[in-house]
């Protein structure tokens, strides 16, 4: 709904953002795709040759690849489970009439603003360290022997750290959704004799379903790319026990200088992310009209 002059001006205003993103998307992805078909190692760039699907086959047959896929899945699902369930419970708790709600909100949201390397270091040293961590102190207090978390349960330890970072995000979004719940609807249900648990399952949960979907999808996008937490704590080890796909590709590219292999891994990561993205786009797209 506008006149002709504004239309052409609008085109001009849109152009830079669109062109920049187009380049940002096409050029690197195209290069990744190209490299994924090359035998290309930075240690020996002279012997670069066409590899066909070798890199993909190599990745596919490497047990570390499947282990990393498995770890990626466990990491994503584990964090989602903790953050969504924890988020719903905490959101409902904060939504109750309490003193100092503002401060409670601030405390709960804080971990989200801690950069990943710092979060990982805090947990690695201050909380989960086998000799000086708070968990060790607690264990000693009860006369138990402290657990070496990152050696014995490396993936679980990383899940804990990442869940701590993302719990605030889930809580905040679910709380926002919860606060838009119609109070009269709740009172009507109470008048109709619905007990608290039924009200939760038949009113609260369906009302939050959209927010829960959004939390799951957005977190998944970020969780597929968890990197710094692993780098700082376990370096992917012991063995490959805490190596996810992102970390595996990083290792191929930066530590083994295997450009072709890393590129093939990158393409696999794109495919994985796209599966999630399709669902997310649908959820968000509905909101546009």
């Amino acid at each position: 709904m506008a006149t002709r002059q504004t239309q052409s001006l609008a085109r001009l205003m849109r152009a830079p953002a669109i062109i920049l993103l187009l380049i940002w998307m096409i050029v690197p992805l195209g290069m990744t795709l190209y490299y994924s078909f090359l035998n290309y190692n930075l240690l020996n760039p002279a012997s670069t040759s066409w590899a066909g699907f070798f890199n993909y086959k190599y990745f596919y047959t490497d047990p570390a690849f499947w282990e990393s896929i498995w770890n990626t899945l466990v990491l994503v699902l584990g964090v989602l489970l903790i953050t969504v369930i924890g988020g719903i419970l905490i959101a409902m708790l904060i939504d109750k009439p309490i003193f100092g709600q503002g401060i409670v909100r601030i405390l709960v949201i804080s971990p989200f603003f801690v950069m990943p390397p710092v979060a990982a270091l805090i947990w690695k040293n201050m909380i989960m360290h086998p000799s000086y961590g708070v968990f060790a102190d607690i264990a000693k207090f009860f006369g138990m022997s402290p657990v070496d978390w990152f050696a014995q349960y490396p993936l679980f330890s990383i899940i804990v750290i990442v869940a701590w970072q993302w719990l605030p995000f889930a809580t905040l979004i679910l709380l926002t959704s919860l606060q838009s719940l119609d109070g009269e609807q709740m009172e009507a249900a109470e008048m109709d004799g619905a007990p608290a648990l039924s009200r939760f399952f038949y009113l609260t949960l369906p009302h939050m379903s959209r927010a829960i979907t959004v939390v799951i999808l957005i977190q998944t996008i970020f969780l597929l790319g968890v990197y710094a937490e692993i780098l700082v704590t376990t370096n992917g080890g012991p063995g490959n026990a805490s190596t996810n796909l992102t970390y595996l590709i990083y290792r191929a590219a930066r530590l083994n200088f295997d450009i072709g292999g890393a590129a093939a891994g990158g393409i696999i990561a794109v495919v994985l992310a796209n599966i999630v993205a399709i669902f997310l786009m649908r959820a968000v797209g509905k909101n546009l009209d």
């Binding site: 669109i18 998307m25 050029v27 992805l29 290069m31 990158g266 992310a273």
Partner: peptide, 18 residues
Amino acid sequence: LMWMLSTKMMPAVAVLVP
């Protein structure tokens, strides 16, 4: 807008090499 959003979904590690 949807396309712009989709570029955000591209995993960083996929374009690490280039």
